[in-house]
Write a protein that binds this DNA or RNA. Structure first.
Lengths: 100, 100
DNA sequence: TTAATAGTTGCATAGTTGCGCAAATATACA
DNA sequence: TGTATATTTGCGCAACTATGCAACTATTAA
């Protein structure tokens, strides 16, 4: 894993590593359908502008996808992408090495 | 997953979500034996005091274990613990729901 | 004891982050 | 049109974070 990958992964983990953002992610986890920002407000303790900013960070990191629908934005979790990144790191951490 | 768990997991991810700390973790990944702080300095772009502080945060989060040995501290990665936390989240994210 | 080595801690600083509020933008609908 | 709803953005603020430096503690070894 080179420096660039580490930096990119760190950005992903940092995006997940904030309690309100992780709450948003966990809420989206439990939703079969995409949710709009107003609906997502209820799961974390910030106002709409804060939720908007958190969702922007999550989407910049590829954690959620936005779909514009009228005046709403519908957010859905990129389950496979996030799970894959987390499992890749888990696998790397648990890999048994022969050398060093 | 309740609020407390989310908060605790966010703390873990935040600890991993800093590029120098993640570099330390990845370096320890590739080491079969525990490494001391001076040795770990080379993998990230901060001085010894910075490394010391980052390692403290990692150990507070249970990511690494410290073993005092003379004037050295030897750090090793808690592979199973970290990998398990990451996989738990990955599993939750990918779980298919029947409702909602 | 003295000097060297390993690591930690206090301090100051620069930069980042999360937040609410208010204003702005965008869209829908009467 | 005008009004309501959904979301974003600018602003300022307070709190937090990462950093280097210098001083410190702890341990080893000459």
């Amino acid at each position: 894993m080179d420096t660039l990958d580490i930096s990119k992964l760190a950005d992903l983990l940092k995006a997940l590593g904030e309690v309100n953002r992780l709450s948003l992610v966990c809420t989206l986890c439990d939703c079969k359908t995409a949710q709009n920002a107003t609906c997502l407000c209820s799961c974390c303790s910030v106002d709409a502008s804060g939720v908007s900013r958190h969702l922007k960070i999550l989407s910049q990191q590829g954690i959620v996808t936005v779909e514009k629908r009228g005046r709403e934005r519908n957010y859905s979790l990129n389950r496979a992408y996030v799970a894959t990144r987390l499992r890749e790191l888990a696998d790397r951490i648990e890999s048994n090495l022969e050398t060093s």
